[in-house]
Computed example of a mutant assay.
Amino acid sequence: MSAGQRRTSSHTITDLADGEVFVFGSNASGAHGGGAARTAYERFGAVWGQGHGLQGRSYGIDTMSGWDAFVADVRDFLAFAADHPELTFLLTPVGTGIAGWDAARVAPLFTDAPDNVLLPEPFATLLDR
């Protein structure tokens, strides 16, 4: 898909339309204290103590338990998104904040994301090269 065709998520997500889900980077303990995790907790129903999966109108991906755990959580998320085509998932640049992963390493994990997953612009740009 070319850059002009790929739908991307907004840089700043403050509201969700019906059927939209905010996807954020989390930690295994579900302590949503900062960044997108805090936004998910304060605005979109993330559950304190739940580190990953669907919670309210948000979906957490554990980015803090090492690369292998992160990759596994991304795979689980992509399968969940594929099973729920009625929802639109607004992906934040998971793993590139506090977790410290480089966007060039993370973006390829989303190469085969279903059409209902809107990638953040940095990921879309890297994948469209």
Rank of each mutant, 00 (worst) to 15 (best):
E42S: 12
G35M: 05
L54C: 04
F44K: 03
F70D: 02
A104S: 13
V21C: 09
T63K: 11
F22H: 04
V71N: 14
G56N: 08
Y59C: 06
F22A: 01
R57S: 12
F80K: 08
G95V: 00
A81M: 09
A99L: 01
T96K: 03
E20G: 06
V74H: 08
A99V: 00
V74S: 07
L78I: 07
A104G: 14
G53T: 04
R105M: 11
Q5H: 13
D15L: 12
D76R: 14
A28E: 05
H32C: 12
T39N: 08
R57M: 07
I13Q: 04
W67D: 07
G97F: 12
M64F: 05
D62W: 13
D73M: 10
G49E: 06
R75Y: 02
A31Y: 15
W101V: 00
V21K: 03
F70T: 03
Q5E: 15
Q5R: 15
G35Y: 05
G49W: 05
H52C: 07
G34E: 12
Y41L: 15
G49Y: 06
T88H: 15
G19D: 01
T63E: 14
H84S: 01
A37G: 00
G45Y: 09
L87P: 10
L90S: 01
G66H: 08
A37C: 00
L87H: 15
A46S: 11
G100V: 03
L91G: 00
L16E: 02
A36R: 04
L54W: 02
G95N: 04
G30Y: 07
A36K: 04
G35V: 04
A79I: 04
R75P: 06
G97H: 12
G95P: 06
S65W: 12
F70I: 02
G95M: 01
F44L: 02
T14F: 15
S29P: 00
L90I: 00
H84R: 11
